[in-house]
Design a protein around this nucleic acid. Structure first.
Lengths: 188, 188
DNA sequence: GTCTATATGGTGATAGAC
DNA sequence: GTCTATCACCATATAGAC
């Protein structure tokens, strides 16, 4: 892995662990093993490096979601597979945590990938639920878009509650609670 | 409002807006109009002041929730009233945002009120749903505790999605999506 | 590409006068 | 109780040699 690559990967880790405000160029240099001059040669500064890191993290989230959605089963089963996917729960969502970072939200360039990621994810799950509704997989009175938004919110909130409790099981409980509601409505 | 009080209130605002890592003693002094010496006279330092602020914010959240739960209607209606309560959506949850702050989670004293708040809220909603189930308000196969966890997660995740989108409407959509699921299951 | 030197301002506090 | 002085260190770079 070359220096530029190590800088991006170290920044991704630090943004996940400490957020944008809590991540200093010095910390990035130390973790990546790159020097001051090296970092400013490859990137114009902290925002530029953070953008490269955030873009990659957002892309990765999207690819993992697509992989789960492409699996076998009914549409509801594929959505459930994504919700139940293995996760580093106590570390939180590497994209969702950025919404709490005032300096990220204040910078349109840094904010865009965050906004796009959730718009895409919610829209994609909404499409799947729409298909499921058309196939008669659950109560036709449910609004696919609103239900999709609620499911993505359960994931993001599940991270919050699990971190508060210091227990990854809380995330799983939230997901199963939501799937229980969706499944009950599937048995109408 | 005396100096001590202004220090606590200013810290509450700053923790909400910028988090613990993003809030400096200097910023607190400027917002409160208190001097350096004044702040260190009333509090031993940043963690001590943050604890006073977090405790008060947690207490407030609890009181507002109790007020909604004590309203009229069936238990499901009272839970719905809490979920739909007016909120400063784009500012996020003043307690939930602290779970993303590594320095808060690393300090047991600061972390305790956060942990207790969510344990209490989830447990309280679980009790209400348990009552509702006993009263036949919804599908008896639903697990009240898991459903309560999912509902609280929808709130916390709703804040995240609304901030990502820059649109408070997304929070409302998530809540209505979740209530739609709960209501459909009430019509079993 | 990478290094070291240098710079301005912020962070989180302590000391002691008033 | 509040103020000013002082401090050691960190944040976020820029400059220019190698």
């Amino acid at each position: 892995m070359d220096t530029r690559e190590r800088l991006i990967e170290s920044t991704r880790e630090l943004l996940w662990e400490r957020g944008y405000v809590g991540t200093s160029p010095k910390a990035i240099q130390q973790r990546s093993g790159a020097g001051q001059g090296s970092m400013y040669h490859h990137f114009s500064g902290k925002p530029d490096l953070a953008l490269a890191a955030i873009d990659r993290t957002a892309k990765e989230l999207r690819e993992r979601a697509e992989a789960a959605f492409a699996g076998p089963g009914t549409t509801v089963e594929r959505v459930a597979a994504y919700l139940r996917r293995e996760r580093d729960v106590l570390k939180g969502c590497p994209v969702g945590r950025l919404t709490q970072d005032p300096d990220v939200m204040a910078d349109p360039g840094l904010r865009r990938p965050v906004e796009e990621t959730f718009a895409w994810l919610t829209g994609r799950i909404g499409e799947l639920l729409e298909e499921g509704r058309a196939a008669g997989e659950f109560d036709a009175r449910l609004d696919p878009a609103a239900t999709a938004t609620a499911l993505v919110a359960v994931l993001q909130g599940g991270y919050v509650l699990a971190r508060a409790a210091g227990d990854p099981g809380v995330f799983a409980t939230a997901v199963e609670g939501a799937l229980g509601l969706l499944t009950r409505s599937a048995l109408f």
